[in-house]
Amino acid sequence: MKRLSGFVLFALACIATPFIFPDNYYVTVVGLTIFVNIILAVSLNLLMGYAGQISLGHAAFFGLGAYSSAILTIKYGVNPWAAMAAGALFVLVLSYVLARPILRLKGHYLAMATLGLGIIVHIFFVQADQLTGGPDGISGLPTLSLFGVPIDSDMKWYWVLCSYMLLSVLFSLNIADSRAGRALSAIHGSDIAAETMGINTSKVKSHIFVFSALMASVAGSLFAHQQNFVSPESFSFFFSIELVTMVVLGGLGSTFGAVIGAFLLSILPEVLIVFEDFEVLIFGAILIVIMIFLPEGLFVALRNKATMLLSRRLGES
């Protein structure tokens, strides 16, 4: 099980944390945000890191999941799990329809298309107030129950989100190390060569686009129930950019890179709160500096350095 040793360590750390620091604000409150962000970053990394397809609109699918849950449960009294599934189904159909025309584009054009999609969805959340409650959003979602147990405390949410987060990380690691993952990396490396090796690149790309959108949609539904509230602010263009930043900060193409990136960027506001007005400035500066000096990402750069040192040690002895 050498392949998953990193995952096992990570899972143990997540499980142990609330026991080591019980009732800690950073665990039960910030921790939940971190988990949601990790799920989103990991799902975005499947598309951006593995397949090399930039997306500046990932928050749209997260938002569509959240709003589906909010609207269906509150306005139509649908069972929360059914609402979540309906939201996922809607996102599945939408992302499947959009995948091919969008992913035919490359580079800046792809960036523009995904960005446009994100902005349109966000404007819809703000403007369709009959349905979405407008800028104020919708509050008062029903409590989610799992096997008859209501998930009604921060600690219970910790376990639910932690489980889904670990599952996402596991899926992502499994995909990396499989035929499907190699097909994605091949497209990233050279889509012409990938195609001549028999990979139906447009199909593979649209499958990962849909998969990643689905992960985000379910995360959105859970987020809506956990927050008990949805509003357009959480799903804006800026959040999409933040997600991209998480993935790039940790290191494109590395699952744990996405995890580390999401972790760092989720606690950053908590740290920067001391600097108040400087927050935006510092955030921008970090982005530029990392991209110039460590374009491969923080986690990946450190990991490569460590392997290099290790192999040199082994070589000497």
Binding site: M48, I241, F278, E279, V280, G284, A285, L287, I288, P295
Partner: peptide
């Protein structure tokens, strides 16, 4: 830098200037 890298650098610059 790759296309993605330059996109993120200029997005970073945009955020930085806005922050300033």
């Amino acid at each position: 830098a790759t296309v993605v890298t330059t996109i993120i650098i200029t997005i970073g610059a945009s955020i930085f200037l806005r922050g300033a």
